[in-house]
Computed example of a mutant assay.
Amino acid sequence: MRKRIISLIVTIGVVATISMQVMANPLSDKLSNQKSQLESQKNAYKKAQSNIQSIEASIEKLDSNIEKMYTQVDKTKVKVGETQKQIVKTTNDIQVAQSNIEKEQDLFNERMRSMYMNGAGSYVEVLLDSDGIGDFISRAETVKKIVEYDNSIVTVLTAKKSKVENQKRALETQKTKLLVLKADNEAKLAKLKDTKKDQSVLILEATKQEKLYSGKVNDGQATVDATMKQIQQMKDNLPNYTVSRGGSSSFSSNAVVAYASNFLGTPYVWGASGPKFFDCSGFMQYVYGHFGVSLSRTTYTQINEGSYVARGDLQPGDLIFFGTASDPHHVGMYVGNNSYIEAPRTGDVIKITELTRGDYVTARRVR
């Protein structure tokens, strides 16, 4: 009896152990699968984020190229206008010169006609018809003056005609130059339209990607939220830096960041420098201008202003640049907490972004 009981207990124990192993294996497999799915989702999200950043960087480059083309087109328009004014002036000068030549030519012809009408075929005949030595000397003096005057008129007419001919050649050169400038303008505008089309496609793709992954957990959003709280604390501890066209003498890095944050949500527009619209460099120029700090207008010049700052030494208010050293196509302002405020690109608005981009170039401190 005792042996049967012991045997039964052993059997129950073996069955229980097997059952626990059978139950544990599915749970372990399920947990492993969940971890695998989570890792796969994280990788997919990181890939999507990287793809979005790459698309947005391409849009920024196009923004930069479009702005440069607009600048070139504007410069060409100015040259066209100046050339057109010069053409008008040269045309007027030619008309005046030709009018003066015609008047002097008429005067010369009138005197020649008068001389022949009085029976004199030449200056020699005028002298031979004199009535004595006194009359001869008088006529000789008169003929001398007439000859000198005629030579003077001929010289002046020749010089003016030469000048008019030179003006006409210059005018033809200017007209040719004007045609070249107009053709250059048309080519730039055509290229601009194609660039805008390419950009529109990229913006749609970026929007699509952002919507596709908007429901995913964004680790960077936590950083941005923390930064927003940090900026709000700055604003709470500082005077009220509201949007103003006037300047402020109370300069500090926190004050600059607090003032810049007033423009969160403001749309990006090429070449705009505020306050209703901004591009990246126009935003930096406007914010610093409020505090009496003068910045140049473009990313390409702002990258040379102030003093160099290593990435590890960034402070709120420092300008940070993206792209390449030879082609910095974007600028933002570091606000602390590994984040920066920026006017990003066409189709977007001023916002706080986590500093994770791979095309970071350098930083400058302008104070």
Rank of each mutant, 00 (worst) to 15 (best):
V309K: 09
A222C: 02
P239Q: 10
N118R: 13
Y259C: 00
K103Y: 12
L264R: 10
D184T: 09
D93L: 13
V331N: 01
S252P: 10
L181E: 14
I12Q: 14
A190E: 07
Q233M: 15
V80M: 08
M23Y: 08
K144W: 09
F283Q: 00
Q95K: 15
N240A: 12
E82L: 14
I350S: 00
A260R: 00
I52G: 08
L204C: 02
P328M: 06
S281L: 01
H290S: 00
L38Y: 11
D93P: 01
K168I: 07
V80W: 01
K79M: 11
I18W: 05
T299V: 09
A140R: 03
T207I: 10
I59S: 05
V164R: 03
Q221F: 04
P26S: 08
I87R: 03
G289D: 01
R169H: 04
V124D: 11
E205S: 10
Y308P: 05
N240M: 15
G347R: 15
S64N: 15
T266G: 11
K85T: 08
Y308R: 12
D135M: 07
L295F: 01
E342V: 09
Y123T: 13
V22R: 02
Y360V: 03
A57V: 12
R113P: 00
A343P: 11
G358H: 04
T324L: 10
Q167F: 11
I101D: 13
Q41E: 14
T173R: 06
S296Q: 08
N166F: 12
N218R: 15
K163F: 12
D318R: 09
Q49S: 13
A44L: 15
Q315D: 04
L295R: 00
G121R: 14
Q315W: 06
K216L: 03
Q49V: 10
K276P: 00
I52T: 06
N254P: 05
K61H: 08
E210Q: 13
Y123D: 06
L157P: 10
I87H: 01
D29M: 10
K276Q: 04
V349S: 10
L204H: 12
V224F: 08
Q98F: 07
I59V: 14
T301D: 08
D225E: 06
Q53K: 14
N218M: 03
S114E: 13
D313M: 10
Y149V: 04
N109I: 15
Q49A: 13
K229N: 14
V78R: 07
L31W: 12
T266S: 05
Q315S: 14
